[in-house]
Design a protein around this nucleic acid. Structure first.
Length: 430
RNA sequence: GUGAGCGUAGCUCAGUGGUAGAGCACAGGAUUGUGGCUCCUGCGGUCGUGGGUUCGACUCCCAUCGCUCACCCCA
């Protein structure tokens, strides 16, 4: 009998890790809501068509990475590989974009059948934001400033911003032709993948890691030279906004996005502490997508932030799970019952209390109490039960234990928790 | 999908062609109702799986599965 194992690329997040996730997640939520973004909760499954029509059938995501299957009704459905498509579908379906503007965000798992490696799993999680109904570039800049604030909230200062403009659909198509023309004459200098992309997704050749290909691109035409004047103004204004915000950035004319729906503004935040998958947040403008999915044409801009990657950056800068305030040590069945009731009363007052359950000598129970990280142990045995008091024993610092009447337990515990908090926080922060 | 590296105790890892080790963790004791530090003792392994070579394989060979990293792709 072989032991059961999780599916390849699907990770369990154990309690210690979950604490960091919560920390990162809530920081992001706080910031998003500070900018007026509101949460939208979306299905994990959509009709395959939702993704095929938005992300593009030529992309690897749709072509070979989606979890697609036929359900019992014979419909082709897919686990979502990203969030934007479903968000736009929902907005159209419920009329959210009808003569309205929406700042939306979502959070949750995405699925892509890729070969797992560092920073890339088959089930991974994203925080996404979509601002629908504004042409920008002010909203684009605000969106980027929002992300910068998330980094600040989490004390991350090594994440670098790159921006680019792909122009509108027309300019982008024109540039694509120019690039293909340029590269076709030197196709032999390209790596194999790029030769293939010349036919499928030529813009992606621009951010190839292959050295030969990069050399061949040395004096390729820049997309920024192909921009029409409107797109150029849009991009220039975005940069002015960012300078006004004091957000450092680098213009990278080679920066492109893998998904088909982007136009005008694209941006990417990367860290060199993440191995090969350095992009922690990326996004851009997708003015054509709402119409493409059957809505009236509405401009939109958004980003997706990879939580696993974020957590990896945050993990050494954050404290562990919240420790309990008190650990209830009880000796004998009568004391056990009284102690558990006392625990309820302490929780009523807002404390975190762990009651010892199961067997255990006082020694054993105090050992557990220490291990739990609790600030104090509350000890209740036959003697205490008989005299209506109990012992409150601080486990951190130099204070001595005290015996108090049961109605005074809350005050005694609170006193110790208050005095030892700063000290233990320092401990756990290291 | 391609390539490379690695699979030994719950965890982190040593190890040798002669039948398996440490640290941490866990349990008990020194300390009958007082944790942490120390000391002692104990528990814990089909050496990923299957096959082959060999008198003998955890070790060498083959296959397979898994993990990791990189390519590809992307957040």
């Amino acid at each position: 009998m072989t032991r059961l194992q999780s599916i390849k690329g699907m990770k369990d997040i154990l309690p210690a890790g979950a604490a960091i996730w919560q920390h990162a997640e809530y920081a992001a939520r706080r910031v998003l809501e500070a900018y007026g973004y509101r949460e939208i909760r979306l299905p994990l499954l959509e009709k395959t068509e939702v993704f095929a029509r938005s992300i593009g059938t030529q992309t690897d995501i749709v072509g070979k990475e989606m979890y697609t299957f036929t359900d019992r009704d014979g419909d082709s459905i897919s686990l979502r590989p990203e969030g934007t498509a479903g968000c736009v579908r929902a907005g159209i379906q419920h009329g959210l974009f009808h003569k309205q503007q929406q700042r939306l965000y979502y959070f949750g798992p995405m699925f892509r059948h890729e070969r797992p490696q560092r920073g890339r799993h088959r089930q991974f999680h994203q925080i996404g934001a979509e601002a629908v109904g504004w042409e920008g570039p002010d909203i684009d800049a605000e969106l980027i400033a929002l992300v910068a604030r998330i980094w600040r909230e989490l004390n991350l200062d090594e994440i670098v911003l790159e921006i680019n403009s792909l122009g509108d659909l027309e300019a982008r198509n024109k540039y694509r032709e120019k690039l293909v023309e340029f590269l076709s004459t030197r196709a032999s200098q390209l790596d194999k993948d790029s030769q293939h992309r010349l036919r499928t997704n030529p813009l992606r050749i621009l951010d190839s890691k292959d050295e030969k290909t990069r050399n061949a691109l040395a004096d390729a035409p820049s997309i920024l030279d192909s921009l029409d004047s409107k797109s150029r103004d849009h991009f220039e204004s975005l940069q002015q906004h960012l300078r006004a915000f004091g957000i450092p950035f680098r213009v990278n004319p080679r920066l492109v996005r893998g998904l088909d729906y982007y136009s005008l503004t694209v941006f990417e935040w990367t860290s060199d502490r993440l191995g090969a998958q350095g992009t922690v947040c990326a996004g851009g403008r997708y003015d054509g997508l709402v119409e493409q999915l059957g809505g009236k044409p509405v401009p939109a801009v958004g980003f997706a932030l990879g939580i696993e990657r974020l957590v990896e950056l945050v993990s050494n800068a954050v404290k562990g799970p919240e420790n309990p305030d008190a650990y209830m040590v009880t000796l004998g069945s009568a004391a056990r019952r009284a102690g558990m009731v006392l625990g309820e009363e302490l929780r009523d007052a807002g404390l975190r209390v762990v009651c010892h359950c199961g067997e255990g000598s006082i020694k054993n129970q105090l050992k557990r109490a220490d291990k739990s990280g609790a600030h104090v142990a509350v000890i209740l045995g036959d003697d205490e039960l008989a005299s209506g008091n109990c012992i409150v024993k601080p486990l951190r610092g130099e204070n001595k234990q005290v015996t108090v009447q049961q109605p005074d337990v809350l005050a005694a515990v609170s006193a110790f928790v208050g005095t030892s908090n700063s000290e233990t926080d320092k401990e756990t922060n290291r």
